[in-house]
């Protein structure tokens, strides 16, 4: 029977309380959000924290709001809430695309957006989605709050910049002014519904007169640094959003990722997927933005 090892349990009543508990117990304490990554790891005894600091009572960290030209998502927002949020979907179709294929509806009821990002699994879907959107993470610590770019948030597999006595509290996504034509999308290949990705790509593109004015490409499960296809983004900037360039972007993304072979698929296949999915997801994002260059939109 796979069950967790002994652990102490503390229920945080406020962000300040949570931070105080984390400070008191030190690095052997773990934040417990939805627990849908942490508890499975504890059952397998891959994680054996001494203390759990349960933040599920911090309902003020559970929100999806528009504040000026930013969408703000509280860390404790459940996957299901993000999927159902019209506000999020209106501005960031990519988030709905991604949430629809993360785990399954029951896991999504309880797993949190912040927990996903902090887990920093190299196959996490939201990490790629937020990287594509060039979001910003807000982290609270003993010394106050700081902001970190989504693209600098992950420092390695299962590692983030969040320190042991810190808490991720929210994610902010910039909402572009209406005259910029933008679109976003997310595509994932999994072996089965509810499975982690074999490979997945997210893209957000903004066009000015058919020329790529800004672009974000996120990749997951394929060994892309910071979940980003930076070289492909660089290539597309300032170029027409046409088929040829999308295909080239896919190739560049494939060249620069470092997938590893595992039972989800061999590295050559995953590299191929990057090529294929990057081109496809850019196409999908562009069609939401108003179409490919050279084609009726």
């Amino acid at each position: 029977m796979q069950v967790p090892a002994q652990v102490e349990y503390e229920k945080a009543t406020s962000v300040q309380h949570a931070l105080a508990l984390l400070a008191r117990y030190g690095p052997e304490a773990k934040v417990l959000a939805g627990g849908h990554s942490l508890i499975p790891m504890m059952k397998l005894r891959l994680a054996q924290p001494e203390v759990l600091v349960d933040i599920n009572g911090l309902t003020d960290l559970c929100f999806i709001d528009r504040v000026a030209d930013e969408l703000r998502i509280g860390t404790l927002t459940r996957h299901a809430q993000l999927l159902e949020s019209e506000l999020a979907g209106e501005h960031f179709a990519i988030l709905h695309d991604a949430e629809r294929v993360i785990a399954d509806p029951i896991v999504r009821n309880w797993g949190t957006v912040g927990g996903s990002l902090c887990q920093a699994d190299p196959s996490e879907d939201l990490s790629a989605a937020f990287a594509a959107m060039k979001g910003t993470m807000v982290i609270e610590g003993p010394g106050g709050s700081r902001e970190v770019s989504a693209r600098a948030f992950h420092t390695g597999p299962y590692e983030t910049v969040v320190g042991p006595s810190e808490l991720l509290t929210e994610i902010r996504l910039p909402i572009r002014p209406g005259h910029q034509r933008g679109g976003s999308a997310y595509l994932k290949v999994a072996r089965r519904a509810g499975d982690w990705p074999v490979g997945a790509a997210g893209a957000a593109v903004w066009l000015t007169d058919g020329i790529v004015a800004d672009v974000g490409i996120g990749l997951t499960a394929v060994g892309a640094r910071h979940f980003v296809a930076a070289e492909a983004e660089e290539f597309l900037l300032g170029r027409p959003a046409d088929e040829e360039n999308l295909a080239r972007a896919g190739e560049i993304a494939a060249e620069h990722c470092r997938p590893v072979t595992d039972q989800r698929g061999p590295a050559d296949y995953k590299r191929h997927l990057v090529r294929e999915l990057t081109a496809r997801v850019l196409r999908a994002a562009l069609s939401r933005a108003g179409g490919l260059a050279g084609r009726p939109s």
Binding site: T261, Q263, R264, P266, Y269
Partner: peptide, 22 residues
Amino acid sequence: LTPAAVWRAIQGRPIRPDLALS
């Protein structure tokens, strides 16, 4: 016939299914 196995079959480099992928 996982996605990887199908793609590899198309490439003419089939996957041997009883051993770990390499």
